[in-house]
Write a protein that binds this DNA or RNA. Structure first.
Length: 887
RNA sequence: GGGCGGUUAGCUCAGAUGGUAGAGCAUCUCGUUUACACCGAGAAUGUCGGCGGUUCGAUCCCGUCACCGCCCA
């Protein structure tokens, strides 16, 4: 016998271990089933499970479990990402506590420390994924710094370099002065900051008392100015173009140039140009062949390129000093408050400095072209579709991708430098030696490039590197391209776009057919969860409290397309209740000896209630399956919930009770078998959403041959039955109507009353006799008389009765002295009024000639039909009122 | 400034080639009839953001405005 409540904590680890140890998660390369592949977005190896992970991995697991059940060889490829900067920062922070820097340790020792740390806490997130019930093929787990994946990185780097798509260049990059590394555009966060606009007067050389005023938000960069630009058509400055200004403090002469970059409507119309410290100015500098004057070191402190007094200053100290000097020189025109966007490093949180350095770049524009076409042509499809706009927008304006990072944890750039700076890009040092020898004609000392690659460079290869590429493995042939990538919108640029580019370039095909983009999980007020707000909900806490299945079901039910997931704990509690409800339904079945019958054929059942639930089951299996296939998780969860609670528990099991208590042994046996069968189907249908409780019930309700997770998804065709549906709908309508009136007329729940049915259509007499027991019990009747004598009706009415209308029939419930006749009259009158309102609405439509002429005929017919029904019901209610007046 | 999404019951959300607006939670009333009080029965609740337009008919389509959220400048 099942316990009274389901206890997830005792059940979950048991089944997970059993699944994992039995190899149930494994894909089978030799299988003749159709493959279905999901590449798991690798979480940071440093990370721990948060609600975003819980959502994305639940959705993926629902898909993979469903596909596994519906006959696919399902591969969910797991793994983790080395997360270069983030991980390095964690370890450096640990070192800091010991007052050691990575430079004290040296590169090799430091790397050892990171690997140690990875070994010790790198498994956290994968352990937590198990608690979520995730079922990836753990045996295939990969790490972006595995030997194999590293080989893929080297191969890609070398290949793209030979193809001219990776190159080394001295460019302005986003320099993080705290982490001492370049970062990509995407790792820069633009924040709105309240700052100032300083207006500086630059004296024009050769003209007494003539100044040109420039406005800037960064006064300190004037130390690196190479020019002043004005708009070519700005007449205020036409006379000055071609002259020079004498840069204050520095005492250098710089030209006044005409360039359209200068916006005459902004500031003073003249803008200072610092090509080495601003991306726009760099462009201007290139156009006018201006010198690049780098004034900062790697800490963003002023270097030896600035006047003696200004050297070695932090950029903000330099700013103060420059402003003070201008003021003293009388060249400070004014200072205005000014709100503008300032770039911050997303990891370090410090202001990013555009800085001129040698870096490696990917020619992203070239790689983006086919990746754009793949989405345009529908080879890869975004779900929901509108996300393709975001993708297109970014891909069509893509900039060269700076891939080198001045850190140690990551894939070291496979480039070696000779003594004269010539470099050799090769997959191995040996090959570099060979190349160098060919170049120099002799052996020379080579030094490997110290930089490592952006983490996203290796994750861009994930869809094929994890399958063994560059080796041509059977896995690669079988599981590439993947079927769907499931991820959040925040990662479209970082990862999705880059996988598309690399996948197409190296595999000749897109990495996945669908890209399902889900929303962010927010708190119940719709706010982003963050540590600082203190509104973080830990998924593991919810699992502890309500069970994993409740959390998974909640996340699925809330994952409506195009909506953020606003998570309130009450929802989880509600779905925990749903799990308990299912548990108790199974318990009821068990108590009533509903055991699965071998060879049970749902098509063969005779009892109407059984035919009905069988049809509903088939409908639900179909609905839930196609909802999952269409990424409609909310519809899948909702459909299952409604069926299990609203149909199976609320009605079917109640219908079964009179049969179990009755004398018809054949009906009893059939109903037991049917109930057991339906419960089994429910377990299948719910399994992708609630793997643990379903597996537990599967194992406890019968002796089973293998686990539920490997069972086939129910394909139930030919079970639909409209006649049965109509019949049971009528039964439900009868019972609900009586219950409602009982409640409204305050008939005590314990009181059993008679029910006289007048005017029942003859074809429903059969229904009435079939379901008499059932209606009697569920409506709590003492008698259910469908052919009452006229005198009986008259007598009942005159002594006081509640009356109601179901379809063509009038239901009379004699209540004798119990009834408040005025109240009943008021109730009936209100009903009549309501029907009058409905009839009036229909009449208005039908009397509109345009409606009758232009609306579709079936719509018009429907209105006529509706009117007839309402009018008939109204007539019956009026008769009831008259009978009541006789009382 | 450009783009995307949202605005439906107190809350969280569904919804239909345009044709009687739904669910869960919360609320209220009643209830221990041998699965379940993490339960059962019943009830109440909406100018479907505003304004225009198209249409016989708009919550749904179009335009516009407002507000909220996000992305990009």
């Amino acid at each position: 016998m099942l316990d009274k409540t389901y206890r997830p904590a005792e059940v979950e680890p048991k089944h997970y271990e059993q699944w994992e140890n039995s190899g149930a998660f494994a894909a089978h390369t030799g299988s003749n089933k159709q493959p279905y592949t999901i590449m798991m977005p690798p979480p940071n190896v440093t990370g721990s499970l948060h609600m975003g992970h819980a959502l994305t991995f639940t959705l993926q697991d629902v898909l993979i479990r469903y596909r596994r059940m519906s006959g696919h060889d399902a591969l969910w490829q797991p793994g983790t990402d080395h997360a270069g900067i983030a991980t390095q920062m964690v370890v450096e922070r640990q070192l800091e506590a010991q007052k050691v820097t990575r430079h004290d340790l040296g590169r090799d020792k430091f790397m050892e420390r990171v690997w140690e740390w990875k070994a010790e806490s790198g498994g956290t997130i994968t352990r937590q994924l198990r608690r979520l019930g995730a079922s990836p093929d753990w045996a295939k787990e990969r790490f972006t710094m595995d030997e194999g994946l590293s080989a893929a990185v080297r191969k890609v780097f070398v290949t793209l370099n030979r193809q001219g798509l990776i190159y080394r260049a001295k460019r302005l990059v986003n320099w993080d002065p705290k982490l001492h590394t370049a970062i990509s555009d995407l790792e820069v966060e633009q924040r709105e900051v309240k700052g100032h606009m300083w207006h500086f007067k630059y004296p024009v050389e050769g003209l007494e008392n003539t100044y040109i005023t420039v406005a800037t938000t960064r006064p300190e960069t004037m130390l690196g100015d190479s020019a002043v630009a004005v708009h070519p058509e700005d007449e205020r400055f036409t006379a000055l173009v071609g002259r020079q200004v004498r840069l204050p403090i520095c005492d250098r002469l710089i030209p006044i140039v005409a360039d359209e970059y200068s916006d005459p409507t902004k500031g003073t119309g003249a803008v200072k140009i610092t090509p080495a410290h601003d991306f726009n100015d760099f462009q201007v500098g290139t156009r006018h062949d201006l010198p690049l004057l780098n004034i900062f070191d790697r800490d963003a402190r002023t270097n030896e390129a600035v006047p003696q007094d200004y050297r070695g200053l932090d950029r903000y100290d330099a700013r103060k000093k420059v402003v003070a000097a201008f003021e003293e020189l009388g060249l400070l025109d004014k200072i205005e408050p000014h709100t503008h966007m300032v770039p911050y490093g997303d990891r370090s949180g410090v202001v990013i400095e555009p800085w001129l350095t040698d870096q490696w770049f990917v020619d992203a524009a070239t790689l983006a072209k086919p990746a754009i076409e793949a989405v345009e042509s529908g080879k890869t499809r975004f779900v929901p579709k509108h996300w393709e706009n975001t993708y297109f927008e970014w891909m069509r304006n893509i900039q060269p991708w700076c891939i080198s990072r001045q850190i140690w944890w990551g894939h070291q750039v496979p480039a070696w430098y000779g003594p004269d700076g010539a470099f050799f890009v090769e997959e191995t040092e040996d090959e570099a030696w060979v190349a160098a020898k060919a170049h120099y004609g002799k052996d020379v000392d080579l030094v490997r490039d110290a930089d490592v690659l952006d983490t996203w460079f290796s994750s861009a290869l994930w869809p094929f590197s994890t399958l063994g590429w560059p080796e041509q493995t059977p896995e690669l042939a079988r599981y590439y391209p993947g079927d769907v990538l499931v991820t959040g919108f925040d990662i479209i640029f970082f990862w999705v776009a880059r996988m598309m580019m690399m996948g197409i370039h190296f595999m000749g095909d897109v990495p996945f057919k669908d890209i399902y983009i889900h929303a962010l999980v927010r708190d119940e007020k719709g706010q982003k969860m963050s540590k600082s707000k203190g509104n973080i909900i830990d998924p593991l806490d919810l699992i502890d409290k309500y069970g994993c299945d409740a959390l998974r079901f909640t996340l699925s039910a809330l994952a409506a397309q195009g909506r953020d997931v606003k998570l309130a704990e009450g929802r989880v509690e509600g779905y925990r209740n749903f799990a308990t409800k299912l548990w108790n339904a199974a318990r009821f079945c068990q108590m009533n000896e509903c055991h699965p019958v071998v060879g049970f054929d749902p098509k063969s059942v005779k009892e109407t209630v059984n035919r009905w639930i069988v049809a509903k089951t088939a409908e639900t299996a179909d609905k839930v399956g196609s909802a999952i296939e269409n990424y409609r998780y909310d519809a899948a969860a909702g459909g299952a919930y409604q069926f299990v609670w609203g149909a199976f528990c609320d009605w079917y099991l109640e219908f079964a009770k009179p049969i179990f208590n009755g004398a018809d042994e054949a009906a009893k046996a059939e109903t037991r078998a049917t109930a057991a069968w339906v419960l089994d189907q429910i377990l299948h249908i719910l399994h992708p959403l609630m793997p643990f409780i379903t597996e537990e019930l599967w194992s406890q309700t019968a002796t089973r041959d293998g686990s539920l997770m490997l069972r086939p998804w129910p394909v139930l065709t030919g079970l639909q039955d409209a006649a049965t549906e109509a019949e049971m709908d009528w039964v439900v309508r009868m019972i609900s109507t009586v219950r409602a009136v009982r409640s409204e007329m305050n008939v005590p729940p314990g009181a059993q009353v008679d029910l006289l049915v007048s005017g029942l259509a003859t074809e429903k007499n059969g229904w009435a006799s079939t379901h008499a027991d059932l209606i009697t019990r569920l409506a709590r009747l003492s008698a259910f008389d469908v052919k009452p004598a006229a005198e009986r009706i008259a007598q009942a009415s005159s002594h006081g009765a509640a009356q109601m209308v179901v379809d063509e029939a009038t239901l009379i419930m004699p209540l004798g002295g119990v009834i408040d006749v005025d109240k009943e009259r008021a109730r009936l009158t209100k009903e009549v009024d309501r029907l009058d309102g409905e009839i009036a609405k229909v009449d208005k439509k039908l009397s509109n000639a345009d409606f009758v002429a232009k609306a579709r005929p079936e719509v018009v017919a429907e209105q006529h039909e509706r009117r007839l029904e309402w009018a008939a019901a109204k007539d019956k209610l009026k008769e009831a009122l008259e009978r009541l007046s006789g009382a």
